[in-house]
Amino acid sequence: MADAEATGGRTAQLQRTGLRHGWTTGACATAATTAAYTALLTGEFPDPVTITLPKGQTPAFALAAEEKSAGRAMAAVVKDAGDDPDVTHGALVRATVRALPPGSGVVFRAGPGVGTVTRPGLPLAVGEPAINPVPRQMMREHVAAVAERHRGTGDVEIEISVDNGEELARSTWNPRLGILGGLSVLGTTGIVVPYSCSAWIDSIRRGVDVARAAGRRHVAGCTGSTSEKAAVAVHGLPEDALLDMGDFAGAVLKYIRRHPVDRLTIAGGFAKLSKLAAGHLDLHSSRSQVDKGFLAELARRGGADEALAASVAAANTGLDALQQCAARGVPLGDLVAATARDEALAVLRGAPVSVDVICIDRAGTIVGRASPRP
């Protein structure tokens, strides 16, 4: 499963619905780590413990458990996902911090209930604990801040565990992705913003209305904040021309079919847009999956031999397939973008809208583009 990105559109939606936001697993792990390392250096656990999120918010977390012994401290917090239907809501997230020799840096370990990466194609190397890059950076920054305040070295091992996490992970796609033994520690903003499909689709429609009222003739439907940045970098679009599409590509296309603009840019991650290219209009992982056989056929069209096509069909993830093709000079990203553009045009049913597509990887690098048809 993935955490919702706390973007401006969803914040406005939160204000309309009155739904209560929550905290990502990564934020909870950071709070527990901060409390544990503080206790390791001072002998006292801060309770509640306050952290700073990537966008500057400073939530406080009550401790649910704490332990300390020589060279080791453990703190735990209960994850509160607010009103979001999150499988990890109520889970106990633990951080055990151990002192390491000077110069060791920060080392991450997967404790019970946290998965380990066993296949390539994810943003973490095989063998690494499934603690995503942003939560890792949050924990590193808080360890450094605690070390500075209390004259520590900042050289620690951080073991994150989630009570009952292995069982909870069976309700996620982790096992299929080769993340075994538990959950992933996720979160890009630290905040879980609750939403419903109807409310999100309503916000998309209102976004189109606002853009048209402002005289915008070019809008961008983006799957998240990273793809939004890519669309802005390419086209220089103003904020009111950006639609927080999320997984609802169909909602954007169908509404713009009835309320046209001159140009629509669709921007998103390679894997999500490969689903659109394959004809899916709902890009959520629970309702559509990356079709590696479809990617293999696109690779063949781009010049892949049968050995590469077979390897793409057997790839662990869409990112893995993309990387394999890039290494062999097959423009799979451009092929996905062009096919997604054509699928979008089919949904638009002749509406006077030109469409271009931008595919990005997890780092925000553009890996595929398709210009409007002549």
Rank of each mutant, 00 (worst) to 15 (best):
L308G: 03
V93S: 07
L41P: 01
V87T: 14
G190M: 02
I266P: 10
D342M: 03
A230W: 02
V114S: 04
P260L: 10
A249L: 05
L308A: 05
E157C: 05
G103L: 09
V290S: 07
G8H: 12
G333Q: 08
G293P: 04
P331A: 15
G43D: 05
L298S: 09
L281Q: 05
E5G: 15
T38S: 13
R287T: 03
M138T: 06
F270C: 09
G224M: 09
G190K: 00
T50I: 07
A309V: 08
Y195M: 15
S354N: 08
H218E: 11
R109S: 12
E297L: 12
L273W: 04
R119G: 07
R72L: 08
S69I: 08
T153C: 06
G269C: 04
R170Q: 15
D262W: 11
G190V: 03
T118F: 09
P260G: 14
T223E: 00
A314L: 13
Q324D: 01
S286T: 10
D47H: 09
P102C: 06
A278G: 06
D291F: 08
G18L: 14
A337H: 05
A338Y: 06
S69Y: 12
K229P: 00
L183S: 00
R257L: 04
A147H: 09
A145P: 01
A31Y: 07
